[in-house]
């Protein structure tokens, strides 16, 4: 019994001696390489860009958000450009026999290439002697003005081209004479000739319109609109019903304009573009676990390659600290 006890004690001592030697060997500090000439090797990533642990460490992290959401906001700056136009549609219609004309100049300002406040001002006049009638309508040159807004549906596209809807509120004064009037009463065999002079009045009316604008050359463009107009209030003269209202026309609900436009840019186009991916990946990761011990990352100079590296059974990723930063500093394209 005593012999066995002595033997056990010796075995225990021997075991303790062996363990102490092994522990001493494990505590041996490995030499640290300080070779600055040695090229840096890619690092392994154990966490994704949101800090979530990966099932397997990877060498490169892909950008998870490969499809960026389309921007709904404006693309162009607030004061993008100013356009000045001249409407000469009625000059074309005069060639077709129309006997009243309205000409105007207009100006608009481009807000984000999206909304276009616009002001128009012009003069209108008429000289009408219809067939089979007994008068001559002579409308004197009278002023009109319109104020409104256009909405450009192509606000994210090239500002040289527009498709828009708009509205106008307008005021027009008018003055006219009705001359060369002839009235016959066959029963009494009588004919009267007279004039109705100095007829004056004014009108308020509105318009809704649709149009397009296309670039011709450099800053020159051409624009067309089709307009539906409606009267709000007309102050008629004392001895007549007005026939022609400047800027409005005569009877009928539709009108059109045809303009030559000159555009003055107010700022350079600042289109927010997607940044290009860098050619070279960043040298180190940033984010959760960045300050962790060497178990989080390993250099490829180790005998095991990145494809062969597997986390040790006892090396589970620690709880993700909340650093507020992505796990790596790869550009995200935002």
């Amino acid at each position: 019994m005593t012999d066995m006890r002595i033997t056990c004690n010796r075995l225990i001592s021997l075991l303790l001696l062996i363990c102490s030697v092994a522990g001493t060997a494990a505590q041996t500090i490995n030499p640290v390489e300080n070779d600055d000439e040695k090229p840096r090797q890619p690092t392994l990533h154990f966490y994704d860009k949101h800090g979530e642990p990966l099932e397997e460490p990877v060498l490169f992290l892909a950008d998870l958000d490969t499809v960026t959401k389309a921007k709904s906001g404006p693309v162009y700056p607030l004061l993008n450009s100013v356009s000045i136009g001249v409407n000469f549609f009625d000059a074309v219609m005069k060639l077709a026999g129309q006997n009243h004309q309205s000409y105007d100049i207009w100006a608009d300002i481009s807000l984000h290439n999206w909304f276009f406040p616009v002001i128009e001002a012009g003069i209108g006049f008429a000289d009408n002697r219809p067939d089979d009638t007994n008068f001559r309508y002579k409308g004197k040159a009278s002023f009109y003005a319109k104020l409104g807004m256009n909405y450009n549906f192509l606000y994210k596209s090239n500002p040289d081209y527009q498709i828009f809807l708009g509205f106008r509120a307008a005021y027009a004064g008018f003055k006219y004479d009705v001359t060369d009037i002839t009235v016959d009463v066959p029963y009494w065999d009588q004919t009267a000739r007279f004039d109705i002079l100095d007829q004056k009045g004014h009108a308020f009316y509105g318009e809704v319109l649709g149009g397009i604008k296309v670039k011709l050359y450099k800053a020159l463009s051409m624009g067309w609109t089709v307009r539906y107009h409606f009267k709000w209030n007309v102050k008629q003269p004392s001895n007549s019903n007005v026939w022609f209202i400047p800027g409005y026309g005569t009877t009928g609900g539709l009108n059109a304009t045809f303009s030559l436009v000159y555009t003055i840019p107010l700022s350079k186009k600042e289109v927010k573009e997607e940044p290009a991916l860098p050619d070279v990946l960043p040298e180190r990761t940033v984010g959760p676990g960045a300050d962790r011990p060497s178990q989080q990352s390993a250099t490829a100079s180790d005998e095991k390659t990145s494809a062969d590296v597997e986390p040790a059974a006892d090396e589970e990723p620690a709880a993700r600290p909340d650093t507020g930063q992505p796990a790596n500093d790869l550009p995200t394209g935002d």
Partner: peptide
Amino acid sequence: MFLAVTLSVSALAGCSTDECLDNKN
């Protein structure tokens, strides 16, 4: 093409409802 549409619209507008529905005296 838009110019043709515009002219057509204006032509239609000009041709519309210019008839005396009452007496001419």
